[in-house]
């Protein structure tokens, strides 16, 4: 292997299954990547919103278990969900859930083999961001009308 003064070369050394040394390409990581691009930012947001939704499932379980437990447990759950803290939490889960759902559709589109070129990637990226806003507002308009009536 050729001599190099770049310290990053050290992490590029790998071994083949027969033990011989080989220089492997380095995966993109935080230090070499601009994370504020549409492509990478939306990619990591898909993971963050997925993980957020996973934690948010606790509120689905609480909602169903409290309803099954009876009127008192239901009233306590409803009090929390309707409190300032509860509404902020539910709103955050709504944003994360719609983003993850819509970005998931974008991933399925890619899996189907469509939309890999940069212009389409940016267009579908904006589509996901705008649709997340629309769906979130729509969900909460429905919820607020139902709550008020």
């Amino acid at each position: 292997m050729a001599h190099s003064n770049d310290a990053r070369e050290a992490v590029m050394i790998g071994r083949r299954t027969d033990g011989t040394i080989i220089r492997r390409p380095l995966s993109p990581h935080l230090q070499v990547y601009d994370m504020m691009q549409m492509t990478s930012a939306l990619s990591i947001m898909h993971r963050i919103t997925g993980s957020t939704w996973a934690v948010g499932l606790i509120f689905l379980v609480w909602f169903l278990a409290a309803t099954a437990a009876g009127p008192e447990a239901y009233a306590r759950m409803q009090w929390f969900m309707g409190s300032f803290f509860g509404v902020i939490l539910l709103f955050g889960i709504t944003v994360a859930a719609w983003y993850h759902t819509l970005a998931g559709v974008r991933h399925l589109m890619w899996d189907y083999g469509y939309g890999y070129d940069i212009p389409t990637t940016y267009r579908t990226g904006w589509w996901v961001i705008i649709a997340t806003g629309v769906m979130t507002v729509l969900t909460w308009v429905v919820a607020i009308i139902a709550w008020a009536s």
Binding site: T67, A75, Q78, G82, W98, V142, A143, A146, W147
Partner: peptide, 16 residues
Amino acid sequence: AFSIAARAGDRWEVMA
């Protein structure tokens, strides 16, 4: 999402 949003604030009897 929309079913549960449309039932926000429902009494226990209705939700159950």
